[in-house]
Design a protein around this nucleic acid. Structure first.
Lengths: 235, 235
DNA sequence: CGGAGCTTTGATTTGGATCAAGACCAGTGG
DNA sequence: CCACTGGTCTTGATCCAAATCAAAGCTCCG
C-alpha cells in the first residue's frame, strides 16, 4: 500500500521549526524534498532593497520543491508562518523507493502540475485583479485548499496569516490590505478575527474574487497526498 | 542517441499555425505535449470581462504543458504570436519511448522545474517591481532565453511582440508600456524598432530590471532540449 | 504594567490607468 | 500609383487606486 511506504519514508526524518523562521534560504544547495506534516509555511523571494513577495503558501500535506535536487541552487526561500513539522524525503527516496511505486510517482507529478497551475493563477491575480478581487481570490484559494485537506470546520478555519503576510502575497501594502479586508467584512463576505476566518457564503466570495476553481484541478481529490496520510506519518 | 529518438518522435506529427491564433483553448481536454519548433507563442488566461494576462512566452525549443494529460481540462489557453510550427508528442511517447530513455525524462523534468521557477519570478515581477523594472526584467529574460537558444545575433534579435503583448505580460496598460519603453530607450538600455530589439549593454539592463538570472538555472545548458535539436527535427 | 507585534485610522502623494486624438506605418485594391 | 484601411505606436490631459507617511489603538504575554 502506497500510504504505508510514504509514511515510513516520511517518518524517518522529521524536523520541527518554530514560527517565522527560514527552513531553506535562497542560494542554498537543494537537498531533500520536504513534506509539510503540520503548520503553515510560505515560499518567498526578496529583492536586495527588502521588497518581498510570497509566491506560494504551503499547507499541511503539501510538498515543497519536488525534485529540485536536479537544480544547483535554490532560487527562493521557504519560511514558516506557524510552528511547522516537516519530513525530509531524501534523494534516494525518489531514486529507489518511488521508482518502484508508480502511483506515488503519479501523485508527485500531480502535485507538481497543480503547483504550476496555481503559480500561473497567481500571476493572473497580481497582473489583472484589483485589490479587492485579489484578496478575495487569495482567500478562496486558501479556503478550498484547506477544505480539501480536511482543515475546515463548517464555515470556519484557523487562519494564522497576518495582514503583512497577505500584503506580501497579494502585492499590496499592508495598509491597503487592511482596508480591503474591512471592505470584505462590510460586504459580509468574510469574518476574520483572532486568527480565525469564516466564510459564510463561499459562492459570493468566489464571485467577488472572480474565482474559477478549475486551476486547482480538484477533480482528482482521492489520489493526492492528503492530510490524513501525513497525520498518520506524524502520529 | 537521445536526440535521434526525440527527433523522430517530433517529426511524426508536425502542425503549422498562422500568427495570432489559438493552439489550445481553456477548457479543452489536454491531449498532447507540444514542442515549439519555430515561432513565438504564449500561454494566457482571461477573465470574463476581457482582462487578459500572458503568463508565459514560448520560444523555439520550448515545451508546453508537459504531462498535462494527467489533468482533466486546460486551465489556460495557448496562442501564437508569429507563425508557429509545433510537434505534438502524444501520450504514448511518454508512456513507452521516454520511459526507456532516462536522459529524455530528466530533460523533461528539467524543463518543468525551470518553467515553474520562471513562473515564480513572474509572480515576483508583477507583485513587487515598478513598471520600468518590470519591463526591463521581462526583456532581460526573453533576451537570455533567446541567446541560449541561439536566436540572437550580436546584440540584436527578432522581437515580434507588440506593445500590447508586453502590456498583457507585464500587467500594465499599453499606454504605460509605451512610455516605459521610451524611458528605457532614452536611458540607452534598449533599441527597439521594427520588430528588432538590440541590447547594447545587458548588464545595465539587468541592473535596471533588478534582474538576477539564477531562476533560469542556465548552469545546465548542455542538457536541455535546445533549438539545434528542434531545427534538426524540422529540416 | 510595559512592551512588541498587529491592526486601524486619517492625510497626502503618486504611479499608472483611462480617455481621446493623432501619427505612422504596411498591405490592398481600385 | 495613390487612396484607404486596420493595426500599431505616440502624445497629452485627466483621474483614480493604491502607496506612503504618521499616529494611535489593540492584545497578548512576560
Amino acid at each position: 500500500m502506497d500510504h504505508v511506504i510514504l509514511n515510513r519514508a516520511a517518518s524517518e526524518r522529521v524536523r520541527h521549526f518554530g514560527p517565522r523562521v527560514d527552513i531553506v534560504r535562497e542560494g542554498d544547495k537543494p537537498k531533500d524534498v520536504h513534506l509539510i506534516l503540520s503548520g503553515w509555511a510560505c515560499r518567498y523571494k526578496q529583492l536586495e532593497d527588502g521588497r518581498r513577495q510570497v509566491v506560494s503558501f504551503f499547507l499541511p500535506g503539501d510538498i515543497c520543491d519536488i525534485n529540485v535536487f536536479i537544480l544547483r541552487e535554490m532560487d527562493h526561500s521557504i519560511g514558516t508562518i506557524t510552528p511547522v513539522s516537516i519530513a525530509d524525503l531524501p534523494h534516494e527516496f525518489f531514486d529507489h523507493v518511488a521508482a518502484r511505486h508508480p502511483r506515488i510517482v503519479a501523485a508527485f507529478w500531480w502535485e507538481t502540475l497543480v503547483d504550476a497551475a496555481i503559480q500561473r493563477e497567481w500571476t493572473m491575480n497580481l497582473g489583472q485583479r484589483t485589490a479587492l478581487e485579489r484578496t478575495a481570490h487569495l482567500l478562496c484559494e486558501i479556503w478550498l485548499r484547506l477544505r480539501v485537506a480536511g482543515l475546515t470546520r463548517g464555515d470556519s478555519c484557523d487562519f494564522p496569516l497576518t495582514q503583512a503576510d497577505l500584503a506580501d502575497a497579494a502585492g499590496l501594502s499592508k495598509v491597503h490590505v487592511n482596508r480591503t479586508l474591512q471592505e470584505l467584512r462590510a460586504n459580509g463576505l468574510i469574518v476574520l478575527k483572532g486568527r480565525t476566518l469564516s466564510v459564510p457564503d463561499l459562492d459570493r466570495l468566489m464571485r467577488a474574487g472572480l474565482f474559477n476553481p478549475n486551476y486547482l484541478h480538484m477533480e482528482h481529490e482521492g489520489q493526492q497526498l492528503d492530510a490524513a496520510t501525513t497525520d498518520a506519518a506524524v502520529g
